[in-house]
């Protein structure tokens, strides 16, 4: 199973990189883009485990390591592998 974790700067925190991207898009003629926020996306490949256990494990990882709570928020989802894992 996998976990997908998204980490974004809090909406109250200015995002200088997002602003630069928005300005670049505007200069390329993409005038409809009002704002850009840049974030991080993590894919964690997990040992198969109980879904609830995976939820709490990933939440702990996201909160304690992947995110700086002063400036960032996160969300995550647990994704079952598309095919059943074959015996190794």
């Amino acid at each position: 199973m996998k976990a997908h974790v998204w980490v974004m700067l809090k909406s109250t925190v200015l995002d200088p990189q997002g602003t630069a991207i928005q300005q670049a898009l505007a200069s390329l003629g993409h005038a409809a883009v009002r704002d850009v926020r840049q974030g991080k996306f993590f894919v964690l490949d997990l040992d198969n485990m109980d879904r609830a256990a995976a939820q709490s494990e990933v939440e702990r990882i996201a909160r304690d390591v992947l995110t700086n709570p002063v400036i960032e928020d996160f969300r995550f989802e647990i994704v079952e592998d598309a095919k059943p894992a074959l015996a190794r």
Partner: peptide
């Protein structure tokens, strides 16, 4: 020290990038 919580706040990317 900020990441460790021994000082408050955080240091982000420079405004001018």
């Amino acid at each position: 020290l900020c990441e460790a919580g021994l000082l408050p706040g955080a240091l982000m990317r420079n405004k001018g990038l």
